[in-house]
């Protein structure tokens, strides 16, 4: 009985609102579509969106609180033996890395001297920005992450993102306190790279695949590329500094009769679930046209002075 009256009431509700409801739907659809078009074309709206993204902050804090506490509960149930084993492994790794670090300081000094010879190479600055990833964009086919640093902290569009393993991606959107980074494995990403062993240059394209592999097309068929070769960033794109680890060649395909071979690279950075990353503050390179005169002027002055 009550159900019947409820149906009648809702029917009456709809009949009264019927025609205007279609109009309302059309209006809202038009509005949101024009919002789409406007946002894609007007940069000012994208800045406004940065303010809207502040909604995210409490939401992400909540989600993170729950996922962290879930992880905490999981960790509680780790038995002691596995913890001790992990501890032992970590100690061993720490020792190895301390030795590496000692070598590192001398290498860094040597590296600096070498780099100063190559004026073109952008230096890895010391005022880099550490960032953490935030929950968001759960669609695994889109290789993007949200970071907890925004334009107020100094993140900017095009900023290289790396982690302990190597290149992660670049910042594509800088909101006020968060930013979005495109991973190198996204199908829209391309990165100039170099084989560390041979110095051969290539382009690493993201494939958008779930295993985050990169594709290096157009490697000359006679090139010396084998499985296990390390691939580093070439530094020619003007965005990423040279020499950052990108990945290791996993597979080389050479179909006979083709002029080029294809290399597949598995990235060395943790692209599956990046957590702690570093935003490099490399000096944005001036356009190539401006570079030479600016460089030549001081040398000319110095030559005149001497």
């Amino acid at each position: 009985m009550t159900r019947a009256t409820a149906t009648i009431r809702s029917d009456r509700f709809r009949r009264r609102k019927g025609p205007s409801r279609a109009g309302e739907c059309l209006l809202i659809c038009l509005l949101s579509f024009s919002l789409l078009v406007v946002e894609a074309n007007v940069p000012a709206v994208q800045r406004m969106r940065g303010i809207g993204e502040l909604v995210n902050v409490p939401v992400q804090a909540t989600v993170r609180f729950f996922s962290d506490s879930f992880r905490g509960v999981q960790g509680y149930f780790h038995d002691q033996s596995s913890l001790m084993r992990e501890n032992r492994e970590l100690r061993a790794r720490l020792l190895r890395q301390e030795v590496n670090l000692q070598q590192m300081t001398s290498l860094e000094a040597e590296n600096k001297a070498l780099r100063s010879l190559h004026t073109l190479n952008a230096q890895l600055g010391s005022d880099n920005l550490t960032a953490e990833t935030l929950p968001g964009t759960p669609d695994p086919s889109r290789h993007r992450v949200t970071l907890n640093r925004g334009s107020r902290q100094g993140a900017y569009i095009g900023q290289p993102v790396v982690d302990a393993g190597g290149v992660v991606g670049q910042v594509t959107r800088d909101y006020l306190v968060t930013s979005e980074a495109l991973l190198i494995s996204d199908a829209n990403h391309a990165l100039p790279v170099m084989f560390e062993r041979t110095g051969l240059q290539a382009i690493a394209l993201g494939t958008g695949r779930r295993d985050h592999r990169l594709l290096l097309p157009f490697v000359p068929a006679h090139a010396d590329v084998v499985r296990g070769d390390t691939v580093v960033s070439a530094g020619t794109g003007g965005l990423f500094p040279a020499g950052l680890r990108v990945g290791v060649v996993e597979d080389v395909r050479n179909s006979s009769g083709q002029a080029f071979l294809e290399a597949f690279v598995s990235p060395s950075a943790n692209l599956e679930s990046p957590r702690q990353v570093l935003l490099l503050r490399s000096e944005p390179l001036p356009p190539v046209g401006d570079l030479t005169p600016a460089d030549e002027e001081p040398t000319a002055a110095a030559a005149a002075g001497s």
Partner: peptide, 22 residues
């Protein structure tokens, strides 16, 4: 805003969905 899609995309889809469903 939450998933970082273009503004208005899910709004459009959700409006159409509710219109269809109701």
């Amino acid at each position: 805003l939450l998933v970082g899609s273009p503004l208005g995309l899910h709004a459009l889809a959700a409006t159409l969905l509710v219109f269809l469903a109701s």
